[in-house]
Amino acid sequence: MFRRLREPSPSDTVTFSFDGRALRAAPGQSLATALLAAGVSAFRTSVVGGEPRAPYCLMGVCFDCLVTVDGVHNRQSCLIEVRDGMVVESQDGAPAIAAESAA
């Protein structure tokens, strides 16, 4: 769904994984844009209907970009930088949105 205007040089990339798949990204970009650029279309499923969701706002407002990062649930991938070695997983429904968030 997205393409990079410029491919990052192989010497200047970070490697991370999404649901076990190894992916590469340019350093300094958000995890959400790294996933979109790598062709990931659904980041999680919705809490009530189990429908696929993907980033809607990319600015921290909608919370549709929630993923599990290095074992921590409900991280807003549009607000965190992609890092080398990050282990990212999609989320099903609300893994402990209740237990972890505190709205």
Binding site: S41, A42, S46, E51, Y56, C57, L58, M59
Partner: peptide, 14 residues
């Protein structure tokens, strides 16, 4: 709410 739908601002941020 479908993947593939985002705000124009989100595309600008990307």
């Amino acid at each position: 709410t479908l993947p593939g739908v985002m705000t124009a601002g989100a595309a600008q941020i990307a």
